Amino acid sequence: AEKTGIVNVSSSLNVREGASTSSKVIGSLSGNTKVTIVGEEGAFYKIEYKGSHSYVAKEYIKDIKDE
C-alpha cells in the first residue's frame, strides 16, 4: 500500500539512488514537498521521484499517511 509523507527540512533533502548515505545523490526535495512512499529499506523510504524510484532518509519525512 502506498503512503504519502511531507519533507520536513528547512532547506533541502537529498534524494539518493540507493538506501544508503553513501549512495549517489540524484536530486533534492525542498521542505513541505509531498512525497509518495512505495516502500522502506532500513533507515530510508523508497519514494516515487521523476518517474522512477529513489530513496530519502526516514528521519526527514513527517505526517505519514496511508493513501
Rank of each mutant, 00 (worst) to 15 (best):
G51M: 05
S30R: 14
L29Q: 01
V15D: 01
K3M: 11
D66W: 15
S54L: 06
S22R: 07
G5R: 03
I61E: 01
G27E: 02
G31K: 14
K62A: 11
F44W: 13
S54P: 04
S10C: 15
G42Y: 04
E2Y: 15
Y45C: 03
N14I: 14
K3N: 05
I6V: 12
E2K: 15
A1F: 14
Y49W: 10
L29N: 00
S11T: 14
E67M: 13
H53V: 12
S54A: 15
A1M: 14
D66I: 14
S20H: 09
R16W: 15
E17I: 08
S28A: 11
Y49A: 00
K46G: 01
V9K: 09
E17F: 05
G31I: 09
K34Q: 10
E40Q: 08
S54C: 15
D63I: 15
G31W: 10
K62R: 12
E41C: 12
A57S: 10
T21C: 15
D66E: 14
K65H: 11
S23W: 03
V25T: 06
V38G: 01
S22I: 08
T36A: 07
K46M: 12
G18V: 06
A57P: 14
E17L: 07
L29E: 01
I26W: 02
G51Y: 04
S20D: 09
S54E: 03
A57K: 11
D66F: 14
V15C: 06
V25H: 03
G18S: 14
R16Y: 15
I64A: 08
A57Y: 10
L29C: 03
S12H: 13
K34G: 04
E67L: 14
I61C: 03
I61W: 02
S12I: 10
S22G: 09
L13K: 02
I37P: 00
I47N: 00
G39K: 03
S52W: 07
S10G: 11
I26Q: 04
K46L: 10
S54Y: 13
A43Q: 11
N8M: 14
E2C: 15
T33S: 10
V9S: 13
A19Q: 04
K3V: 09
K34P: 07
V38Y: 07
S20C: 08
D66G: 11
V38W: 06
V35A: 01
K65E: 12
Y60L: 06
T21E: 14
K24R: 12
H53G: 04
T4S: 09
L29F: 03
I26F: 03
E67S: 13
D63S: 09
S54M: 11
Y45H: 02
G27T: 02
K62F: 10
S52E: 08
R16I: 07
Y49G: 00
N32K: 08
I37W: 01
S12F: 14
T4M: 10
I26T: 05
L29Y: 02
A1Q: 13
V35I: 09
T36V: 14
T4A: 07
E41D: 09
E67D: 12
A1P: 13
D66V: 14
A43C: 12
K58S: 05
T21W: 15
G39P: 00
G31D: 11
D63R: 09
I47E: 01
V25S: 05
Y49T: 01
T21A: 12
A19L: 03
E59Y: 08
T4P: 05
N8Q: 11
K65A: 11
T4R: 08
N14S: 14
T21P: 13
V35F: 03
S12Q: 12
N8W: 13
I47V: 05
G51S: 06
V25L: 06
A57C: 14
G27S: 02
I61D: 01
N14Y: 11
K50W: 07
D63H: 10
F44D: 02
G18N: 10
E40A: 06
S11R: 07
G51L: 04
E40P: 01
N32F: 10
S28H: 14
V56E: 00
E67F: 11
V56M: 02
G5V: 05
I47D: 01
K62H: 10
K50C: 12
K62T: 14
T33I: 07
T4V: 12
G5Q: 03
G39H: 03
R16Q: 12
L29S: 01
S22A: 12
K58E: 01
V25P: 04
S52H: 10
T4E: 07
G5W: 07
D63E: 15
S54V: 14
A57Q: 14
S12R: 12
A43H: 09
T33N: 05
H53A: 07
T33R: 05
Y49Q: 01
A57D: 10
V35Y: 02
S52C: 08
E59G: 07
E2W: 15
Y45E: 00
S30D: 12
G5C: 07
V56S: 00
D66Y: 14
